[in-house]
């Protein structure tokens, strides 16, 4: 029979839940804008107006997508700021410390466990305890997500919100284009992270254990 560790304090659970909701909104609205459907004039690649086509939207109306993407993004900025402060203030940031010896080797061991060892019934190479909330692969991923990708997403998002802040040209290219490419690419990888993150969370004692942990704060260890 396993025991329970209180690893997810209330502030973290609330932040995490808000983050989740915002990401759902941002992904849906972001996709809607990126794949905005044809409407009005159908124009050929040479600039010739071919015909007038029916109005269409992808997932939702463009204006609605812009509005909700902006609202969710502003909340996300504050939520991220709250996370940075709370993570440092409470000391939770220590779990993200990637300065440890032979990290790459440990990441490989963890990856091997997910890909092979767990099917053979091998023990978890880095079991969770009060000093090690995240395994090496997990904490490296979380570090990159929260301290590399999120700042890039937030800063490029601020750039899109206040385009006058972006230089006209970056490396001879439109500053807007470079900023937007960064925003979309980072957004894409964070979405990808979210999918894998949700799946990995089914690898608890039972598929729902880790999800419950994020609701009640307790991590169940067997």
């Amino acid at each position: 029979m396993g025991h329970k560790l209180y690893l997810y304090p209330k502030w973290l659970r609330i932040w995490h839940f808000i983050n989740l909701m915002l990401f759902f909104i941002l992904i849906a609205t972001g996709l809607s804008m990126h794949y905005s459907a044809a409407s009005g004039w159908l124009v050929s690649s040479t600039g010739k107006a071919v015909s007038n086509v029916e109005n269409g939207n992808f997932l939702m109306d463009f204006m609605t997508a812009v509005k909700w993407h902006n609202i969710a993004a502003i909340i996300l900025c504050f939520n991220y700021l709250f996370y940075l402060i709370a993570n440092s203030y409470t000391g939770n940031v220590r779990y993200y410390n990637i300065k440890e010896q032979a990290l790459l080797k440990k990441i490989f061991i963890q990856a091997r466990y997910y890909a092979y060892g767990m099917f053979k019934g091998e023990p978890h190479p880095f079991p969770v305890n009060e000093e090690r909330k995240f395994n090496p692969l997990q904490k490296t991923t979380y570090f990159i997500t929260m301290y590399v990708l999120m700042p890039l997403l937030v800063l490029s998002g601020i750039g899109l919100f206040f385009p006058e802040l972006i230089p006209d040209k970056i490396f001879g290219l439109s500053g807007l284009l470079v900023n937007s490419l960064i925003h979309i690419t980072v957004g894409y990888f964070l979405s990808l992270f979210m999918i894998v993150h949700i799946y990995i969370c089914t690898l608890g004692v039972t598929p729902s254990t880790l999800f419950k942990g994020m609701i009640n704060g307790y991590h169940e260890v067997h």
Partner: peptide, 28 residues
Amino acid sequence: AVQKCNECHSQNSILMATLYKFKAKEER
């Protein structure tokens, strides 16, 4: 006047037949 965002913000953006028309014709 055009008020639907996706008349410009779409694959078949009218900008290709307006603002970028000359460039579209010149640069293939």
